[in-house]
């Protein structure tokens, strides 16, 4: 694929963009999540006195961290990518290029940056003896694949429609916290009232949060059924996103 080189080039540029002008450069990618981790442990543990609800031996910070970092990658990828076509209007209007590459590169760079943060956090938690199971790291990374597909699907959908309806990106930005708080990230699934717990699984991220905790912290087992549904959902969303994007792609220039 000729555009693979282009995607790599654009991704590199996107990542460099984030750290351009900073003294420490790429070091920020590792430093920032660790700082964030320190702040969370202060705010949630010292101030809110948060405890892991299921009563296991896991501390709250690793409990939060393994679910929050993948979420950050997902939500940032969708939010950033939803404006990527609009942002690159100048490029699209003057250079013939596969526009899909822009979306892939945007989603990819968000995932690369936050995957690096995730790895740093997991390794630090493991070194600190916070109950991280190193055998879970590889499957956890594999779980990023459907998460990436899901994010890419939403990103293609939003990026294409944003060209036509500019209200979409602000709406997506508003919807993300809603999704975050309706997924078991800051709490556990069992804390929802039992009669509406099934609603939790309408949130596409729920399965991911539960599975990351199961894999890395040994909290419960990975529900194979849920994972299969999540895989199917990711494939479906990616397909729908690509279909919409391809359908609207020839008309971008008219509406940008």
């Amino acid at each position: 694929m000729a555009s693979l080189g282009l995607i790599v080039g654009l991704t590199r540029r996107e990542i460099r963009n984030r750290f351009n002008g900073t003294l420490s450069g790429g070091l920020w990618a590792l430093l920032q999540p660790l700082l964030q981790l320190a702040i969370y442990s202060f705010v949630f543990v010292r101030i809110f006195n948060a405890r892991v609800p299921e009563g296991s031996s896991i501390a709250y910070v690793p409990y939060l961290a393994v679910a929050l970092w993948p979420w950050t990658a997902f939500s940032e990828a969708v939010v950033r990518a939803s404006i990527v076509i609009q942002e690159n209007a100048a490029l699209i209007g003057k250079v013939a290029m596969p526009r899909q590459a822009l979306v892939w590169a945007s989603v990819g760079s968000s995932f690369i940056v936050h995957l690096a943060g995730f790895a740093a956090v997991v390794v630090v938690l493991w070194l600190l003896g916070q109950g991280v199971d190193p055998r879970g790291i590889l499957p956890a990374l594999l779980l990023y694949v459907p998460l990436f597909a899901l994010a890419a699907g939403f990103a293609f959908l939003c990026a294409a429609m944003q060209v036509f309806v500019r209200d979409l990106a602000p709406l997506v930005t508003q919807l993300m916290p809603l999704l975050m708080f309706t997924a078991p990230i800051f709490y556990g699934s069992r804390q929802w009232p039992s009669n509406v717990q099934f609603l939790l699984h309408l949130n596409p991220y729920t399965t991911y949060a539960e599975s990351f905790r199961a894999l890395l912290l040994g909290m419960g087992a990975v529900d194979a059924g849920n994972v299969l549904v999540a895989l199917a959902a990711a494939a479906l969303v990616l397909f729908a996103g690509l279909w919409t994007f391809r359908r609207l792609d020839p008309h971008f220039e008219d509406f940008l």
């Binding site: 000729a2 555009s3 080189g5 282009l6 790599v8 080039g9 540029r13 963009n17 003057k94 250079v95």
Partner: peptide, 25 residues
Amino acid sequence: GAGFHPDYSGRDNIALAAALHGITG
């Protein structure tokens, strides 16, 4: 300057412009 990014050096921009034409590596 279509496809050029103002913050990057000429060298970097050449690389990307070439990538847009399918020239990499």
